[in-house]
Design a protein around this nucleic acid. Structure first.
Lengths: 241, 241
DNA sequence: CGCCAGGTTGATTTCGCTCAAGCAATGTGG
DNA sequence: CCACATTGCTTGAGCGAAATCAACCTGGCG
């Protein structure tokens, strides 16, 4: 609650309010004021849970900084990372709208900033702002198309191709262009999570990584990946990202 | 357009209007009238396409009878059956709402009845009936949860378990109780589609079916499946359907 | 009758899972 | 500061499962 903290809170909501990807960027004046009063900003350390599968919903969250993983668990200890959420993404809205407990956990995959909007505030916003519901609908549809793509790939691609596709997706969000034209990625996830996203075991991911190394299409060092030529990698799967 | 046809049209829309699962069952009087005028009922033969992936959207469809498969194809000829739609389900609403071409094809998996509601009618209904948008949102969220379940299973279950799970799901919709307490299913899909839903090749499905036969947990004869004990089958995967 | 699509079966090779050991980085308590 | 446990990752060996390619049924259907 120092002035600097207050200031950073304001900055966080620039992303929340005017970001092109945000669900909240075109609220009218009273709605914005309502949102500002019902919103609580919080920083999360790596591995901290934003919400937990099975717990009752207590409003929605909006990612403002960092990366948040949406994860599903079962009683046998299996864990699958279903999707990644980035600044501007709203999460936890599904269980809010259906009035059920959370079907997934949300976990900060690194230092992250996430705003929380409590149930009464979001309910009031939804009631007075029909466009917001439509925006959630569009978001839900987008996620559904994404999930269908995923199912299709799981059924048709080899493990290697699935990993290559995942790397190409991660380049878009986490890649940074090197001086020599190569792309570097700081992976936001562990090998185990990488494996769950590909639908295989972590040992297999290790071996596939080894093969990508020997083929010279990607170099791994911990969570650092260097891709000499993204085009060459993309050529392995001739459907564009 | 004979009187009987007219009568059947009315009957079809009992399912569309008052069915518990239908998206249209609580429209007000003028909206119902609008729907009745903008709706066109059509029967489809087995294999006929209701809409085709890549084509522009021309409104939404509502399944009134039979079973409709939602399928995704790629340029290499791969085909994956993503979901099944039953009477009361609305399909094609995603591309309508996003204003894009169809991302999937919808195919009658047997003699089916599907109503079509054109773009202007559905737009008018959505404008005057905010609850309808909310209903689409709920439907989309439900499909998303379903897709996430699917992704999770694809990543954690063996092919045999995935097939068993699929059979257990199909029992709910297509099963009928035999005199001796066994359940019989008329599979609505071919072996190839079964394989695509499990995420494997059709030869592998044949072999898994063979193993289920020898294990005595299911008997296959063409598209007829008999399951002596659903409980025994469900015991293989100890998470309830 | 021959053709064809859908399905089954077989042989072979590749792939991935499992179990197990080893290794590096990190943290912890003595 | 060092022994030690822990965690995440890699590697290996053996085995079972699945992909692939191919042959062969079998039931429509012209």
């Amino acid at each position: 609650m120092t002035p600097t903290c207050f200031k950073r809170e304001g900055q966080a909501c620039i992303a929340c309010h005017v970001g092109r990807r945000s669900d909240w960027h075109d609220l009218d004046q009273p709605a914005s004021a309502l949102l500002a009063s019902g919103r609580r900003r919080r920083e999360y350390g790596s591995g901290e849970l934003v919400f937990t599968q099975g717990e009752p919903n207590d409003g929605v969250h909006c990612v403002s900084g960092g990366t948040v993983g949406i994860r599903r668990l079962d009683e046998k200890g299996n864990s699958v990372l279903l999707e990644l959420a980035y600044p501007g993404d709203t999460i936890g809205y599904r269980s809010f709208l259906t009035g059920s407990e959370h079907k997934t956990s949300a976990e900060a995959l690194g230092p992250s900033v996430v705003c929380h909007i409590d149930r009464v505030t979001i309910a009031a916003l939804l009631g007075g702002n029909p466009a917001l519901g439509l925006r959630f609908l569009k978001r839900s549809i987008g996620e559904l198309e994404h999930a269908h793509d995923m199912i299709f790939r799981q059924a048709t691609l080899s493990n290697r191709h699935k990993l290559v596709h995942l790397l190409l997706v991660l380049v878009v969000r986490h890649g940074r262009l090197n001086s020599n034209g190569a792309q570097s990625i700081d992976l936001p996830v562990s090998r185990r999570d990488l494996a769950s996203m590909v639908g295989t075991r972590h040992e297999t991911i290790s071996r596939i990584i080894g093969r990508l190394e020997t083929d010279g299409v990607a170099h791994f060092s911990g969570r650092q990946v260097t891709i000499p030529s993204v085009d060459a990698l993309a050529a392995e799967i001739d459907c564009l990202i």
